[in-house]
Design a protein around this nucleic acid. Structure first.
Length: 447
DNA sequence: ACTCCTTTGAAGGAA
DNA sequence: TTCCTTCAAAGGAGT
């Protein structure tokens, strides 16, 4: 992911806010019919988070289509020239990571031969197998590459050793085998009888907005502040009515962290505006917390989470987010553009409402967690966007090919079982695409 | 009660 | 300029 700073947007505001917005499309399905993707696709995604070999068996053939991601310099607004994406051969059977969106050099859809898993220790230890969420669900390959970066593997392995798998499924069982009714029943048997809660089914997809929003003492105002897609839509997102007018008062705009703050949010005192006359430390402690505006992906998540939860009956946000992350990448440019535009509007409105606010103001708010994260090695953190981008594109710090991804060493990857699709050497990801400019995405070639 | 997990994107500061 | 870090949402699960 290009590391797009939007400082210009933040400083200048206005329409140029979106100038740095970008629409990235790591397209594995070019039909632009994501909206039509029904629950079965989602279920497949779910299963793809869990199982690899299933896909191998089912897919039979690797994704051999050349995925040519068109480089598109057009800004977010408007000029999407949808690249010609060759549909994923398995588009009708969307396997996400399960069916690698990109081919692997070993000719299989699976980047990691099953035979290698044991060698890599993935199948060892407390059911930590490829099918174990601790090694699979909790550590899917990168969105584009379908390759778990080594550091991520290590991280997850370490995590798996340090703590029990996040999504423990019966050992060896197929956690979310949604590919067939039988398997679905199996899956249902693993869950509580409310696996498919009637409420969810009967009510259909829970409307993400505004009903799904937490209704706290300040929730309404918070969501007004939040410019939720419903309230602040007007973008043709189908998310809700037109852009909601700004809240009546600044006090309405202050919100708190969802959980840690909800505890104290019951007291309206915390909702006092920052410009309150009292300015002592005590007051600063109660200083309202202005949340960051949601970015495009967050908006997408908020919208789609309830839907995914209803369809998958998954509730673990980590798993849901993985699904959403993949779906995000599978969105068409147009679809993503809507969210980028919405995010741009949120940022713009946020800037207007809080001219002096800085994201830095919120640093340290959840100090403990952040400190602990800081303690961990950066490789365990999943890296920043650029790092992730490099992991995906196989770029090193000079935006050259990472060794493991370089053409010269691709065979190593193959032999190591980490087959991957590398960007076409002739078109390395330009550095410009990493910072502040619309994405220039590499052309992928079959290895 | 608190923290972690997990995702992408934005932003700010450090190097 | 590049890189790193933090935060935004969410809720189950672990400590």
């Amino acid at each position: 992911m290009p590391h797009a700073h939007s400082s210009s947007a933040a400083s200048s505001g206005g329409d140029d806010l979106g100038s740095t917005d970008e629409v990235k499309v790591f397209k594995d399905e070019g039909d632009g019919e994501d909206e039509k993707r029904s629950s079965e696709n989602l279920l497949e995604e779910k299963s793809s988070l869990i199982d690899w070999t299933e896909s191998e068996e089912k897919s039979g053939e690797p994704y051999s289509g050349k995925l040519s991601v068109k480089s598109d310099l057009s800004p977010v607004f408007g000029f999407f020239s949808p690249g010609k994406f060759e549909p994923h051969p398995a588009a009708s059977f969307n396997m996400g990571y399960l069916m690698a969106p990109y081919p692997y050099p070993n000719g299989g859809a699976h980047p990691l031969p099953v035979s290698m898993t044991g060698k890599m220790g993935l199948s060892a230890g407390g059911g930590l197998s490829l099918f174990c969420p601790g090694g699979e669900l909790g550590q899917p390959p990168p969105a584009h590459m379908g390759i778990p970066p080594p550091y991520q593997l290590d991280s997850k392995l370490a995590a798996g050793l340090a703590r029990t798998p996040m999504y423990p499924f019966p050992g060896g069982t197929y956690p979310y085998p949604m590919l067939s009714p039988e398997m679905s029943q199996v899956a249902a048997s693993w869950h509580t009888p409310s696996m498919y809660p009637i409420s969810s089914a009967a009510s259909g997809f829970r409307s993400p907005y505004p009903t799904s929003l937490p209704i706290t003492s300040s929730s309404l105002s918070s969501e007004l502040y939040r410019f939720s897609p419903t309230l602040g839509g007007g973008l043709g997102l189908g998310l809700g009515p037109a852009l909601v007018p700004p809240p009546h008062s600044k006090a309405d705009l202050f919100t708190h962290h969802s959980r840690s703050q909800e505890k104290g949010s019951s007291s309206s005192s915390a909702e006092k505006p920052a410009d309150s006359s009292a300015s002592n430390n005590k007051e600063q402690n109660k200083k309202p917390h202005i949340k960051k505006p949601l970015n495009a992906f967050m908006l997408y998540m908020k919208e789609m989470r309830a839907k995914v939860v209803a369809e998958c009956t998954l509730k673990e946000s980590a798993a849901i987010n993985q699904i959403l992350g993949r779906r995000w990448h599978s969105l068409s440019r147009e679809e993503q553009a809507k969210y980028y535009e919405k995010a741009r509007q949120e940022r713009q409105l946020h800037m207007q409402l809080y001219p002096g606010w800085s994201a830095r103001d919120n640093y340290g708010y959840g100090s403990k967690k952040k400190k602990r994260k800081k303690d961990r090695g950066p490789a365990e953190l999943g890296g920043n966007n650029l790092k992730k981008c490099r992991a995906r594109y196989g770029l090193d710090q000079q935006n050259q090919w990472c060794k493991p991804c370089s053409p010269e060493s691709s065979s190593v990857m193959v032999s190591g079982g980490l087959g991957l699709l590398r960007p076409e050497p002739a078109t390395p990801l330009p550095a410009a695409s990493l910072v502040g400019s619309p994405p220039q995405e590499p052309t992928y070639v079959n290895l």
